[in-house]
Amino acid sequence: MSIDVTYRERQPGLFELTLAGRLDTDTYAQVEATLDGIFANAVRGIQFDMRDLTYLSSMGLRVLIKTMKRLRPVRGTVTLTHLQPQIHKVIEIASVLPKENIFSSVEEADAYFDAMQSKVLGQDG
């Protein structure tokens, strides 16, 4: 039972977090620790790449919900890409995040992030 977690800042403030393996009771703390490290930066968005994530339980949903809560004050965005069918189903059942935040390609997720950010900047300006 394990998970591999890697991340990179793909655009200023937009961090892509790649999860491979299982996100469950055993592994969620590892992902939360990585997120703590990311949130030491000025974060505007977290993009979870889930193409190699094979399993997600309620502890994984908890990680997603916490991430959304942390991004709320800066009106940041959580996006998910490349969900395997069972993972998609679990996220749908829990209705954790709206369909608009789930993408089959990084390009679409980026476009959504850009659109949301210009909205935030527009409101600030």
Binding site: S58, L61, L64, K66, M68, K69, I93, A94, V96, L97
Partner: peptide, 24 residues
């Protein structure tokens, strides 16, 4: 059942496990 109508940010972080099981 958890209140799925609350926006994600307003929800408690727990309580989803049993709901998932019932649905699967």
């Amino acid at each position: 059942a958890p209140d799925l109508n609350l926006s994600t940010e307003d929800r408690p972080v727990g309580g989803l496990g049993i709901h998932l099981v019932k649905n699967l």
